[in-house]
Design a protein around this nucleic acid. Structure first.
Lengths: 352, 352
DNA sequence: TGAGCCTGCTAAATCGATTGATCACATATT
DNA sequence: AATATGTGATCAATCGATTTAGCAGGCTCA
């Protein structure tokens, strides 16, 4: 069963293809009588005509498609939300999205960008899964937006999570609960460079604004960003002398926070009564499934996906040239934060 | 900077566009001298020509694109692997994939299928995220493959996980470790219908083949498939009299298994010394992060994604008409299974 | 010398839409 | 009567490739 073409509609309605096109596209200014319009529309409906997007794309020089090239889609739960955001925005604007997963392979990435350009995509989104600064790939069309990363040399709109504000919100949550001895379970130095640095900066800033001088022992590093690594780092905090031991921990991410739970449990410490914990990322399967559920800061992947797509399609004003848009990271309050244990509050208040 | 067209190459090489096309597509049988071929190729390289896929698609009636419509992409970690599998297979065959997320909205789904057909995709993949039987959507082209679901009325190739074999492997793992009192923490009746039924069937079959008569009390249901629900169901098992209490649990999925861990811990039971646990799904962030890491059965989403794409592109033989391909689910051995406690028959062993 | 056959290349049709120019005809104006 | 104006619809070019039929020129051979 061959596809119905515009000429089939024209034949059925007894008019030319021009007329059909003019009617179906509602071209104002075209002088077509109302009777003819009705006849054409009915003919189109009865033969079941839908326009061939390829032919239209060729003629119009506009395909109503966008390309999304991402370095990772399988190994992180964030990718899905990002895609969903991009997807929804694209659909709302009548666009379809080509998805390419490069697995961070530069050759695959190059070929993918070329293939998408050859497909005449109207716009392109270059996404990374971890907030970072990247080289602008060759052949990237002008109409491109960076998602969860920033081009070193600028030249394109970009959106990343506002990790500084998010980190501040997380630590303020602990300060507001009355904690003074607050630790930071950090990722390995420089990995991933941007996120880690900003969250650490937020930690230091909030302690300073609360008039707390952090003890260097409160800043511990994990070798990776896993639960096991978070546990090991937390052990070191819990080994500190009682008057120095933190009553609250801000963790680089939720997985490390899960490790903190394990460490605390092995010492017989209750969360949050004996130790308050805040994570980052809001990984549903981690933060939501922990016992008690983890208070954390969400990474706004869905929103960033939407933002990037809307900017790429020109439906939203881009930020000033070479400015990166910072997407707010909302704090997700669950049950892992309470006021510090009474004993801790009384025993030692270290102030500058 | 306008795109380079084939006519630009022709002009640069001093030949016709026909010649350029013939040369660049390596059409054997075309009588073009070697000198001309070299000249054309050099011209193409220097002007930086790459063919316009839209124009080619129109002429060839073949776009080298496929459509993938999925009911969910954001809320499950499995979606990513499925996409990655489809993606990789498509790339290896020189195809690009259009991704559409319908959020299980029938209207969105209908529009998406139409849009993809209008884009002249060469093939289509209809994916669900949870193994199920579905109605065949209207307008679905003949060249379509069902992924992680089966059309009620057949007519298309389909691939689903072999949950029966996977479930058998899981329970056999417990039988092989020496367990006799093996429980099944099930999902709610009929939700999701197919997976739950098959895993239950596997449980009953393996007990039967091991000569074990299951006590009805060993088959408990959770109201949902969450950790909390798994915990509640497990509590009921642990409340059984000592001589009836299971020494091993097969859980419908990893999240419920995480709940079983919580229940066991609250009773002071060690996993696997006091209670062996096997899950299903191999959700990395759950199974891998538990303490101890959970032995489970993996859902082969990546492989199913590949399979569906290869069949859709004709690169792999489809199964016999109206036969559904069952993809093996490999067992992932971690540390949550050991032999039953020696005193299992008469002691509840509460630990401090 | 001219029919037959290669060789090397190109003209022109085609894919299915969109659109500016144009046509046929009716009516209004001078 | 001749010209202008307006209406409704169509013609034909176009987008950028692929592909079939065929042309021009050289060579062979009877």
């Amino acid at each position: 069963m061959a596809r119905v073409r515009i000429s089939d509609v024209a034949a059925a309605a007894g008019v030319s293809t021009s007329t059909v096109s003019l009617v179906l596209n509602d071209r104002t200014g075209a002088r077509i009588s109302e009777e003819t319009r009705v006849r054409v529309r009915e003919a189109a409906a009865t033969v079941g005509y839908t326009p061939n997007s390829i032919a239209r794309g060729l003629r119009m020089q506009r395909t109503r498609t966008i390309g999304l090239v991402s370095d990772v889609i399988a190994t992180t739960p964030f990718a899905g939300r990002m895609l969903a955001g991009a997807q929804d925005a694209a659909r709302e604007h009548g666009h379809l999205v080509f998805l390419v997963n490069t697995d961070a392979d530069p050759a695959v990435e190059r070929d993918a960008i070329r293939a998408l350009v050859d497909q005449q995509v109207d716009a392109m989104i270059y996404a990374c899964m971890w907030h970072q600064v990247v080289e602008t790939p060759a052949d990237l069309p002008a109409q491109s937006v960076f998602l969860d990363c920033r081009p070193v040399s600028g030249g394109h709109p970009a959106v990343v999570p506002d990790e500084l504000a998010g980190g501040r919100a997380a630590v303020r949550e602990l300060v507001a609960a009355g904690h003074r001895r607050i630790a930071y379970v950090d990722a390995e130095e420089l990995n991933p460079p941007v996120a880690s640095g900003l969250r650490r900066q937020a930690y230091l800033e909030v302690l300073a604004e609360a008039g707390i001088t952090p003890d260097p022992a409160w800043h511990v590093h994990g070798s990776e960003t896993t639960s096991a690594s978070g546990r090991a780092a937390t052990e070191r905090l819990l080994d500190l002398p009682a008057d120095l031991r933190p009553t609250a921990i801000f963790c680089f991410n939720d997985r490390m926070a899960a490790g903190a739970y394990v460490a605390a449990r092995h010492r017989g410490l209750e969360i949050p009564a004996d130790l308050s914990v805040v994570g980052y990322d809001d990984q549903q399967l981690v933060a939501g499934e922990l016992d008690p559920p983890l208070t954390t800061v969400a990474l706004p992947h869905y929103e960033m996906g939407r933002w990037a797509t809307e900017v790429a399609l020109g439906a939203r004003e881009p930020p000033a040239p070479d400015q990166t848009y910072l997407m707010p990271c909302p704090i997700i309050r669950r049950d892992s934060v309470s006021s510090p244990p009474a004993a801790a509050a009384n025993s030692s208040r270290r102030r500058a």
